[in-house]
Nucleic acid binder design. Structure first.
Length: 151
DNA sequence: GCCAACGTTGGC
DNA sequence: GCCAACGTTGGC
């Protein structure tokens, strides 16, 4: 089982929205590196839920990969902001996963705390200029994050 | 709102 | 294939 980190702007979709909906399709990712990470996910993998572009950015919860290797339907929808006119049904360009709520942390971990607790080598999130919305988290680091979030 | 960092686009 | 211009991300 692998660990991942998924970024979302809470004003768009928050951990509380996921708790309400229980599952969601993680569609709309339009970055090839992030797409490749999405494609290498497996059911049962865990993903940290990260709130970005908010007053206190940070990891706010945990979810699990419910279904994997799904074609992102929004690429075919001309009314979607994620529509990709260069993609085709025969050879879809964008893939995604369905994510299932696991828990919201009683104690969210602000980016500032993560910077104090981890190096940028340990956590890709902390690397300079990182804008990836999907990234892997090393298992040992994931365990430490879980420990910090569960006092 | 600012701005650094990065990815993508498109002319050549 | 280079690279300038542009758009986006996301912390602050």
């Amino acid at each position: 089982m692998a660990y991942w980190l998924l970024k979302s702007e809470p004003q768009t979709f928050s951990i509380h929205d996921l708790e309400r909906d229980q599952t969601t399709l993680w569609d709309g990712v339009r970055n090839y590196q992030a797409r490749n990470y999405l494609r290498s996910m497996h059911p049962g993998d865990r993903a940290f839920f990260y709130h970005s572009s908010t007053a206190v950015p940070g990891i706010v919860g945990l979810c699990r990969i419910h279904r994997a290797h799904l074609v992102d339907p929004s690429q075919f929808d001309p009314h979607s902001p994620y529509f990709d006119p260069h993609s085709s049904l025969e050879q879809p360009r964008w893939w995604t996963v369905e994510v299932q709520f696991e828990r919201a942390f009683a104690q969210p971990l602000p980016l500032e705390t993560l910077r104090q607790q981890f190096t940028s080598e340990e956590l890709a999130l902390l690397r300079r200029g990182n804008r990836l919305s999907v990234m892997p988290v090393e298992e040992a680091v994931a365990k430490r994050i879980l420990k910090l979030a569960t006092p």
